[in-house]
C-alpha cells in the first residue's frame, strides 16, 4: 500500500501504466509461444542448412526462445566441430 506521501507526490504508478507494462510482458510470452513440433522442425532445418558448411556438435546444440528486455529472440548456440571439407 503506497504511503500518503507517495500519493501526494504522485509516486504511485497509475493503473493505465501498470496495465500497459503487464500487457507488454504477457504479449511477449504469448507471441513467443512456438508449438513444440514447429520448434523441432525449425531446429532440424537450421541444422540441415548449417551442415552444408560446417560439422555441428549435435550433442551440445541448443536452440530456444529467450525473452530479453525489449523483445523476444530466437537464440541458438551451435558448437562447430570443423568446417565441412566437402564444401
Amino acid at each position: 500500500m503506497p504511503s500518503l506521501l507517495d500519493r501526494l507526490f504522485g509516486r504511485v504508478e497509475k493503473p493505465a501504466h501498470t496495465a500497459k507494462s503487464r500487457l507488454k510482458l504477457v504479449l511477449m510470452h504469448d507471441r513467443a509461444d512456438i508449438p513444440a513440433p514447429m520448434m523441432e522442425e525449425m531446429r532440424k532445418e537450421i541444422i540441415a542448412v548449417l551442415s552444408k558448411y560446417v560439422v555441428i556438435d549435435l550433442e551440445h546444440l541448443d536452440v530456444g526462445i529467450e525473452r530479453a528486455e525489449g523483445g523476444v529472440a530466437l537464440v541458438a548456440s551451435i558448437p562447430i566441430v570443423r568446417v565441412n571439407a566437402e564444401h
Binding site: 497509475k14 493503473p15 493505465a16 501504466h17 496495465a19 500497459k20 500487457l23 507488454k24 504479449l27
Partner: peptide, 16 residues
Amino acid sequence: MVKSQDMLAVEDVQEV
C-alpha cells in the same frame, strides 16, 4: 478515465 490515467489510452493499445 483515460485522462486520469486509470484506463489504457488508445495510444497505449496501439503501442502494445
